[in-house]
């Protein structure tokens, strides 16, 4: 799965959790917090994304991601090594 495909999945869940972003065009540089997702929203988005990817990892493994692009990158690596 490509990084862009993972970003599409993340974006789908962000839109579900933060409906005001329905029309937002997501980019690699987007930061969830700056988009208005609070800490619970971010946990929800990550959990939904991990389920979509059938990826069972700890949330701690994703903590270093500074934006959606980096998050997709870490998820892609985890997918490849799982």
């Amino acid at each position: 799965m490509s990084k862009d495909e993972i970003i599409t999945i993340i974006a789908e869940h962000v839109r579900a959790v933060v409906p005001t972003l329905e029309a937002h065009q997501f980019s690699h540089d987007d930061k969830l917090k700056e988009l208005g997702a609070n800490s619970v929203d971010r946990s929800e988005i990550l959990m939904m994304t991990m389920e979509s990817l059938s990826l069972k990892i700890s949330l701690v493994d994703l903590a270093s991601a500074r934006n959606i692009g980096e998050l997709a990158g870490i998820l892609r690596e985890k997918l490849q090594s799982s």
Binding site: V40, S43, E44, M47, M48, M50, E51, K56
Partner: peptide, 8 residues
């Protein structure tokens, strides 16, 4: 799918 239980 307990491990994906929604955090909220």
């Amino acid at each position: 799918r307990l491990s994906f239980l929604r955090p909220a």
